[in-house]
Each structure stands twice: as C-alpha cells, then as structure tokens.
Amino acid sequence: MTQPRRLRTPRPLGRAAGVVLAGGSGTRVGAGINKAFLPLAGRSIAGWGLNTLAAVEGIGILVFVVRPDDLEHARFVDSRETEHPLEIITGGETRQESELLALRHLADRIDTGAVDTVLIHDAARPLVSHGLVSAVLHAARETGGAVPGIPARDIAAAGPGQTLAPSTDLRRDSLVRVQTPQGFHAATILDAYEAAARDGFVGTDTASCAEEYTDITVTWVRGEETNFKITYAQDLLLAQDVVSALGLRTG
C-alpha cells in the first residue's frame, strides 16, 4: 500500500449514507490482519467498496466502521485510497452492534432529515458494482427497504440423516442468496435497531432486523455473481482474476 496521497474532492450532495462494515478478521483467509485491509489489485479490499459507494449519485456520507485495532489501517485507506473523506468510527463486538453504532453516529442527521436512506455494506464484498448500489438505493427509497439477491437454484433440502429430501419439499424458485449493500429508510431502521437492542434481539443481517421490528416489506433486486464475499484465500484469488478479466481500475 504505497499509493501517493490523493487529491480530495468535496462529497457530492446526497441524502443517503453509505455504511461499510470492516469488523472481520483474516483468520480464514490465512492472513495476520483484518481481511478488509489486504491488498487487491492496487488498493485494499475495503477501498474498492468504499470508492464504489462514494461514486453513486445520492450518497452524501460514508461511514467506515472498524475495530479499534484497525484504526491506523482505516486512516490510511481514508488518506491514500479514497477520493472522498470517510467518517471513521469503531464498531462493537457483533455485526449488529456495529450497525447500531453506525446508525447512532448518524442519528442527529437522520432526525433532521439530512439523511433519509442508509445503505449497509460488507467491506469483504469489494467488487460490488456502481449499478447494483444505485439499484438498491433506488429500490429502498421506493419501498422502504431493499437487498440484492441471487436466485438460489443450487440449494437442496436436507432429509433425515445424511439424505436429501425430495425436491418437491423445497421451492427453489422462492429462495435467494442475499448480498449487500442492504438499504433502508433511515429513521425506520434506526428505530428498529434501538428496539432490537432493548430486546436483546440479534438478527442474521440488516434485513432480518427490519423484518422483525418494522412493517417494511423488504424487496430484492437482482444481485451479481461478482459481488461475492471474500472469506477464504481462494476467494481473494478469484477476486484478483475478476479484476483482471473485467479490466477494473483502482482510480
């Protein structure tokens, strides 16, 4: 990571906030640092998603949520890899706590209407496209909540023991593999997370908390196969291949 310091430009006007979560580790990737800060074709894994969200019209704020031990890495990303300033905060012990802290960080601006929509994205999904982020933002503003999803036609139902259940037991056309960013009406999702904190409810992702504590019918837009999550070393190798194949640039 030896990029020269970038010229900073003012954030574009926009009432949506992008939140990028980088609370993972590098254990399963086989790295000694948080995988979000591993290099991928000229910038960190986290830097890819941050720059994509920053380029989407309508997103005016970027919040980068990291572990306390990763603050130095995050400041490097902010100063050397992103074209627009980041608001860096430390997260909690769980994903949901980190999301809540990000929403509380935005609470004053949500209350005044300066932020009307929040998109929450995993830093470990570096190759999310500009078009997909835009589609989620548009759908979230239209319906109150939206997520990207890939039809899960490769899923089978487990039967007794180690058998597979008959295919009639599972409607594959009704299942999707959910990705990020997940977008929601800001005031509604903030209230939902505060209620979940009071109740001790822990969801699997942002959408599960919305489904539990709001009346929003979460919609889904078509996700992208390239918007995969980097979990293992082979995922990082695949991401490098995708960057090369698609001719993606770091700046």
Rank of each mutant, 00 (worst) to 15 (best):
P10F: 10
R15P: 00
V20C: 09
V29W: 00
I33K: 08
P39I: 03
A41F: 04
I45V: 12
L50Y: 04
N51T: 08
L53D: 05
A54L: 03
G58W: 03
G58V: 01
I59A: 13
V63K: 00
V66P: 04
L71V: 13
V77W: 06
E81P: 10
T82D: 04
I88K: 01
G91Q: 00
E93V: 12
T94S: 12
Q96F: 03
L100C: 02
A107H: 01
R109M: 01
I110H: 01
D111G: 04
A114F: 02
R125P: 07
P126K: 05
L127M: 12
H130C: 09
L132K: 11
S134E: 15
A135Q: 15
A135R: 15
R141G: 13
A146G: 11
V147P: 01
P148A: 11
G149W: 11
I150Q: 09
P151G: 13
A158H: 06
G161A: 08
D169T: 13
V176Y: 13
F184V: 04
A192E: 02
G203T: 05
T204F: 07
E212C: 13
T219M: 04
E225Y: 11
E225V: 14
N227C: 12
Y232F: 07
Y232L: 07
L238R: 08
V242W: 05
L246Y: 08
